[in-house]
């Protein structure tokens, strides 16, 4: 009993140390948000992002539409809307192929959530936007090329 209590105390101590380190920005806050896919977001190429997020690099063509400007004058704010008629979407991911870290966002959806997401992303330079949808354990993707005249990655 007392040993268990000791282990428990040590556990909480270690936990709080990690918490402090994380809030100081020393550790990546993987410990704070268990769901945040660190490896996928850290990846510097599309294949790594796909693998980190979906454990697979390949996706079939599917009923996915990407709405984004053909030419974005300001890469810091590129509006993008993804719609999909695929049933039972579990996850929708947005990837900007030529960004330093391609994975921009991942959306986990409930059964009542429709296949529709709209947001604004940063694009460092002209690149393909890739939308990946996971539904029923299968992967589908679509892409669209967006030309960027001024980059949005702080350069």
């Amino acid at each position: 009993m007392s040993i268990k209590r000791r282990t428990f105390l040590q556990g909480t101590m270690a936990g709080s140390v990690i918490g402090v380190a994380a809030s100081a920005g020393l550790l990546s806050p993987r410990t704070v948000l268990a769901a945040w896919p660190q490896a996928a977001f850290d990846s510097e190429n599309v294949a790594g992002a796909m693998k980190g997020l979906f454990s697979s690099e390949t996706a079939a063509d599917g009923d996915i539409t990407i709405k984004a400007p053909d030419i974005a004058e300001n890469g810091a704010v590129v509006p993008i809307t993804v719609t999909s008629g695929i049933k039972g979407i579990e996850t929708m991911a947005l990837i900007v192929e030529k960004n330093p870290r391609p994975l921009a966002a991942s959306f986990d959806m409930s059964p009542t959530t429709e296949g529709y997401v709209s947001t604004r992303v940063k694009m460092g330079k002209t690149s393909k936007l890739i939308a990946v949808v996971k539904a029923g354990g299968k992967l589908y993707s679509a892409s669209k090329e967006v030309k960027v005249t001024i980059g949005g990655c702080g350069g």
Partner: peptide, 21 residues
């Protein structure tokens, strides 16, 4: 109904829109 995981590539003052039934 929706959990969004974001990176730094989402624009400043983020906008998010989605639909549900």
């Amino acid at each position: 109904i929706l959990t969004a995981e974001w990176s730094v590539a989402i624009s400043k003052n983020p906008y998010l829109s989605f639909k549900f039934t």
